[in-house]
Nucleic acid binder design. Structure first.
Length: 211
DNA sequence: GGTTGTTTAAGGGCCC
DNA sequence: GGGCCCTTAAACAACC
């Protein structure tokens, strides 16, 4: 990885065409986890499909327009392997391939030490079957729904799907029977939420391909 | 058949 | 040195 010359400020870093050409194809100093997180955070609904994550990374970093099979496999592995990424089922109104991916609300700022290549500590969910975690700046909304509602004006996070049985009396058939239902718990992100902002640090790299 | 998602394994690098 | 994190590769299943 080529280092950034100290003679350049962030503002004029990419104003040099030759510099941009030289560094646009070098590997960005971010781990796949930070790239995925940034793609998610920069999406309007703070959730992305896998293909949207691919697209975001390729759009912003020329380096990832090559050897796609290699890094895309790594992206998929990162999404599955890391608890900080949560899979969100597609809404029935939005048919298509693959689920949406979002950040676990408790993952917070995983790169608060300023290093985007290696986290201080990997985020892990202690007990995946327990109730959703809470944070002071989050409010919990409980919605009875078999599918995930996609609200455009509100941000929903973290679909904790639970299954429960309801006792139903049907006089026409055999009386009592049980019906299995699903319920989702959502964490709604309030406007004051400011977790995981990588914007500043990503700024100069985001400009690489606009040249 | 291609894409998506999961899992396992190995190797390199960083930190205590 | 050991533990942890990250990357890469690969195999496989499920889905569209």
């Amino acid at each position: 990885m080529n280092s950034i010359p100290s003679t350049y400020s962030n503002n004029d870093l990419w104003s040099s065409a030759s510099y941009a050409r030289r560094y646009a194809t070098s590997k960005p100093p971010y781990s796949y986890i930070s790239l995925i997180a940034h793609a998610i955070n920069n999406s309007p609904e703070r959730m992305c499909t896998l293909s949207q994550i691919y697209q975001y990374i390729q759009d912003h970093y020329a380096y990832y327009r090559q050897n796609q099979q290699r890094w895309q496999n790594s992206i998929r592995h990162s999404l599955s392997f890391n608890d900080c990424f949560v899979k969100v089922p597609r809404h029935a109104d939005r048919p298509g391939k693959g689920s949406y991916w979002t950040l676990h609300p408790d993952s917070g700022n995983m790169f608060e030490n300023g290093c985007y290549l290696r986290r201080q500590k990997r985020f892990k969910i202690k007990d995946k079957t327990s109730s959703p975690p809470t944070e002071p700046n989050l409010s919990i909304k409980t919605i009875d729904s078999p599918t995930l509602p996609m609200a455009s004006s509100e941000q929903y996070f973290c679909p904790y799907k639970t299954e429960y049985s309801t006792q139903i009396y049907d006089s026409n058939n055999n009386g009592l029977h049980y019906e299995t239902n699903h319920q989702y718990l959502f964490q709604q992100i309030l406007p004051t939420d400011a977790t995981f902002r990588l914007d500043n640090l990503f700024n100069y790299y985001d400009q690489t391909d606009s040249s």
